[in-house]
């Protein structure tokens, strides 16, 4: 399986943010495409983006905050190098995702919406990945993994951590 690029992208500058925002100014219903573009590029939605978005799309800052916080996908803090989502939905429950979830939390030492101290992993819940005949399912960045077990999970995180060392 290929390892999709890590969601942590470049650090941002106001000029870069503005450039992304400008590209969406004339798109109908630009808000979500714009928020996705910012998060895809910078890994999260920096606080500094909020007034710029508000200005560009003629919203109040409070409205922009409200929209960002409504959607589970958008985050306002930098994530770890890999974002791990564990499926919490029923089909995965029926094949042991509750036990997997407990193992994942213990093994990473974090709860949902948290990042490991070494900034390797951010853990998120997800409600179905469309792999419901072959669960338990997890997603690491853009790759989905099926029939996940605690052992395979540990193997996977070891491999993911090892790629860092190679890069360094």
């Amino acid at each position: 399986m290929s390892h999709a690029s890590s969601p942590v992208a470049d650090a941002w500058t106001p000029a870069q943010l503005q450039a992304v925002i400008d590209a969406y100014q004339s798109t109908p219903g630009a808000m979500l495409p714009l928020l996705h573009a910012i998060q895809d590029r910078f890994g999260f939605i920096p606080e500094a983006a909020v007034p710029l978005i508000a200005e560009a799309l003629r919203h109040t800052r409070a409205e922009v905050h409200g929209i960002i916080s409504f959607y589970h996908h958008f985050r306002t803090h930098p994530p770890g190098r890999s974002v791990i989502q564990v499926c919490r939905a029923e089909a995965c429950q029926s094949v042991g995702s509750r036990q997997l979830e407990a193992h994942v939390k213990a093994s990473l030492g974090v709860d949902y919406h948290q990042t490991t101290p070494d900034h390797e992993f951010t853990l998120e819940p997800v409600y179905c990945l469309g792999n419901c005949a072959c669960g338990p399912s997890i997603r690491v960045n853009d790759d989905v993994f099926g029939r996940m077990t605690p052992e395979r999970f540990d193997q996977l995180t070891d491999e993911l951590s090892a790629t860092v060392l190679e890069v360094k």
Partner: peptide, 9 residues
């Protein structure tokens, strides 16, 4: 997605 989740690549 499912085939790839089971190592098809």
């Amino acid at each position: 997605t499912t085939a790839r989740a089971l190592d098809a690549d």
